[in-house]
Design a protein around this nucleic acid. Structure first.
Lengths: 142, 142
DNA sequence: AAGGGTGTCATAGGTCACTAGGACAATAGC
DNA sequence: GCTATTGTCCTAGTGACCTATGACACCCTT
């Protein structure tokens, strides 16, 4: 049986948004990548079964397989036939302390944005736009 | 000739990213929508020519047309054959003052994130994750 | 040895997005 | 009127992605 570590169950809340415009398997890739980057998944952790994910998010098992394979090619996952799919490599991310600090600061900003009347899309728009400006300024400063 | 207002030239810097996973015409839709939401485009402003955009970002004119039509259906744009495509409606966004304030706060946060070693993807991951948490908390608090 | 759970593969079909190339209609300026 | 520019449309073709269904190979437990 070897049930999943309960930790994963909470963190890996797979979800498919049909309105995002992003193709389903790439949505899964992105969610797993984010979990790896934020330290929610550690090397050796086992991911949910292909069939389980497919049933949960209501897509075809082949689509889930495609997402897993995509990450396996990048060396982030390893799939062992008959056993499951496991994390093979973690992504560089902030330390737990820094992450908590950044998250708190971001939550304060979100409250401020909400008070200004922004909805989720507005926040996303402003963030995307500002990040773009930030990156561009960095490049010019070099 | 009625050249474009120089304002648009700087703000509407169309760009197609092949790595984003988002389909090209939706990338244009998103960029225009963001510009509308942030007040970079005003009612009556003229958008770049279908053929101009197609040439600039190296995609087919039909793809640009699809993006424009997508926004026209939503009542955000109006296309006048022989004249061009114009902004028909603006989207609710923060006031100029609030926007400037939010942008400054966000820039500070980005500097902090950069100091913590995050790259653009890491920032994006943390933002997406935190927004999701924020929205969820809002829903539960109702 | 037997069974169940797992990853994997193959086939076939459908939908959607993009491309290429050309042509037409409306508008503005000469 | 003529011409250039603009939005619009059409056809055909290509490719990516997803689905449904079934089957196989591997591993572990019993």
């Amino acid at each position: 049986m070897t049930p999943l570590q309960p930790r994963n169950a909470n963190v890996l809340a797979f979800h498919i948004e049909n309105t995002s415009g992003l193709t389903p398997y790439l949505q899964l890739v992105q969610q797993i990548t984010h979990a790896l980057r934020l330290g929610h998944l550690k090397v050796g952790d086992r991911l949910p079964t292909v069939r389980d994910v497919a049933a949960k998010v209501a897509i075809n098992p082949n689509t889930v397989l495609k997402a897993y394979r995509h990450l396996e090619v990048q060396g982030l996952l390893v799939s062992r036939p008959g056993r499951g799919v496991f994390v093979a490599k973690e992504l560089a991310g902030p330390s737990a302390h820094d992450q908590a600090s950044l998250r708190r600061a971001l939550l304060r900003w979100l409250s401020q944005a909400e008070d200004a009347g922004l909805d989720a899309e507005g926040m996303q728009a402003l963030f995307a736009n500002t990040v773009r400006q930030f990156i561009q300024d960095q490049a010019e400063a070099s």
